[in-house]
Write a protein that binds this DNA or RNA. Structure first.
Length: 329
DNA sequence: GTCCAGGGAATCA
DNA sequence: TGATTCCATGGA
């Protein structure tokens, strides 16, 4: 029988005080978390469906795991009862399952002190009021430790695409090839494993709406299956550039996608600076001031980021990206 | 109808 | 090497 798992983050703890679900889930790093009518978030992560509820004082995660048991109605009812009004019945900063707690700690990167990261960025750029503003704006962001394989496929889909559509394609992919989990009577689907996609054809990717990315997905799946690129071995590489080179062998993985994989997966390399249209725009607006943002040299952006933000430039990128994008809308 | 989206690969200069 | 062009799709 499926078990309900819970874990609570206490926002009274200094390190956790700024954490924001909205900022973390809507800063563009993940595609499978969706806001609910009650302002909670529900997401599929690995084999879990997780409901996250945030209040002023804490964040409560409730997870249910797929164990091939379809008779989960009673459990679903229990989950349903966890809402803002009732969450006070749960003890502060605790969990009923050690594995789930460790899973959450790892996934939300809770061992890293983002306050320290932020101070470090400001210390390095004491007169940069825009950076300071962007950090203040996105201080609740945590860089998730997401599944490497899922990030590879997801960011191949992201190429020249918009976030709602990326999410739609990933959802269809999961529905067709992933496993079903039921929460509150609603069906969710885990992200397909490598083996689940081994026989998928180019045409079938096209049917999901992947467009011209169909061939890239097909090729990459086969490159990983054949171990032309061994994604398990990647974890053994010490330096970031070496991993970059390995990822770049995959079809549909260029410099920007490789950097996103490095930054948002559990490889968790902060010393990368993914440059997309938004980052080029914000870096040009703030620091470079070229008349045509499309003609800003990428190396110039990377050199500047390296100089200003150093080893944690990936986090700075995320603050600037989120700040600039949200301001637009 | 046109433009754009968390770009990459192929092609050209 | 560096710049241009093409690539599906759906929403604004």
């Amino acid at each position: 029988m499926s078990k309900i798992m819970q874990c609570t983050i206490d926002k009274n703890i200094e390190k956790f005080k700024d954490i924001s679900l909205k900022q973390t889930f809507e800063c563009g790093q993940c595609f499978r978390w969706n806001i609910q009518p009650d302002e909670s978030y529900i997401g599929v992560v690995e084999e879990y469906v997780i409901k996250a509820v945030e209040t002023e004082k804490k964040i409560i995660f409730t997870g249910i795991k797929n164990d091939e048991d379809r008779n989960v109605d009673k459990i679903s009812d229990k989950v349903k009862s966890i809402n803002k009004a009732e969450c006070s019945e749960f003890p502060e900063y605790s969990s009923n399952n050690e594995n789930f707690e460790n899973f959450i700690i790892n996934y939300f990167d809770l061992k890293n002190d983002y306050g320290k990261f932020q101070s470090e960025l400001i210390r390095k750029n004491p007169t940069d009021k825009y950076l300071k503003e962007s950090i203040e704006y996105g201080k609740g962001i945590r860089l998730l430790n997401q599944n490497l394989w899922e990030m590879i496929i997801s960011f191949i889909i992201s190429a020249n695409n918009n976030i709602p559509r990326i999410k739609g394609i990933i959802e269809k992919l999961s529905k067709k090839y992933g496993n079903e989990i039921i929460l509150e009577g609603k069906k969710y689907y885990t992200f397909p494993k490598l083996e689940d996609l081994k026989d998928v054809t180019i045409e079938e990717y096209r049917e999901l709406g992947a467009g011209f990315r169909d061939k890239r997905l097909y090729k990459t799946v086969n490159q990983i299956i054949s171990k032309e690129v061994d994604i398990n071995k990647i974890y053994n590489y010490e330096n970031t550039q070496k991993i970059q080179e390995e990822l770049l062998k995959l079809s549909g993985v260029g410099p920007k996608v490789a950097d996103c994989i490095l930054l948002f997966s559990n490889l968790k390399r902060l010393d990368v600076f993914p440059v997309d249209v938004w980052v080029r725009r914000v870096m040009n607006d703030l620091y470079i001031h070229n008349n045509d943002e499309n003609k800003v040299n990428k190396k110039e952006i990377l050199d500047l980021a390296n100089k200003k933000f150093g080893e944690i430039q990936g986090l700075a990128q995320q603050y600037l990206f989120y700040w600039r994008r949200e301001k637009e809308s």
